[in-house]
Design a protein around this nucleic acid. Structure first.
Length: 224
DNA sequence: GGCCAGGTCAAAG
DNA sequence: CTTTGACATGGC
């Protein structure tokens, strides 16, 4: 088969041609982006939208408001996104981090360079994926976001025969594609769009899938 | 009613 | 390092 560079690039081209640019992350401000990144952890985006709407309605969508709000009250506002007690605690940790490190100016994240990702990983509630989300979409760092959809796609493409650690997937993309913030951001967004639209876990609509030719999913025989 | 959704943490082997 | 349980709502 062709080399990995061509393969990953072709997947990107096909998805881009099928869905057009997504212009992620869906948010009005950098802070809203960070809040969304935490709230969407293992949750449906439609539920995250309800939670963010609640925060906006109560003027609680700012670092200072999140810090000032009693945790139980914050929890009720983000309740639609699930795991609301845990997420309230995570939001508070993130808001405290923003004040301590950047004086509440999210633009400060852009000045950390590659160090940003490591700093984010130390914050309670920010794991590998969320750190990459923020580093990429707010920090402007050329890092690749690996979510459940990305893993499923890579496995169905036959790149790995079994699941691997997060870092293995991340390196797969970063070592085989040019470091381009806009492209990485678009690639991840397209993977999510494709997953929601056609490449679902249950009842995947492979019939009209643009990746059909290069995806192993559902194939019983494959040419050498 | 069961399964799934743009994960993370802490404890334990 | 891998596995397991906890955390929880809402749509189909």
């Amino acid at each position: 088969m062709r080399d990995m560079r061509s393969k990953l690039l072709e997947v990107y081209q096909l998805l881009l041609g099928q869905y057009s640019p997504q212009h992620w992350w869906p948010s009005d401000t950098p802070f809203e982006m960070m809040v969304g990144a935490i709230l969407t952890q293992s949750a449906a985006w439609t539920n995250v939208e309800k939670a963010i709407a609640n925060l906006k309605k109560e003027d609680a969508l700012s670092p200072s408001a999140i810090r000032a709000l009693p945790e139980p009250e914050l929890a009720q506002l983000v309740r639609p996104s699930g795991y609301y007690n845990a997420k309230a605690r995570k939001l508070k940790a993130m808001a405290s981090f923003l004040w301590e490190e950047y004086g509440d100016d999210p633009r400060g994240l852009r000045e950390d360079g590659e160090l940003l990702r490591e700093k984010l990983l130390k914050v309670y509630g920010i794991g590998e994926e969320t750190a990459d989300d923020i580093a990429l979409y707010v920090g402007g760092i050329a890092t690749f976001v690996v979510d459940a959809y990305t893993r499923r796609l890579v496995l169905r493409l036959g790149v790995f025969s079994e699941d691997k650690p997060y870092e293995t997937y991340r390196r797969l993309f970063m070592e085989n594609l040019p470091a381009d913030v806009a492209m990485f951001g678009e690639y991840h967004a397209l993977i999510v769009r494709h997953a929601k639209e056609a490449c679902r876990k249950t009842a995947p609509r492979c019939g009209g899938c643009v990746l059909r030719r290069i995806c192993d999913f559902g194939k019983s025989s494959g040419a050498a």
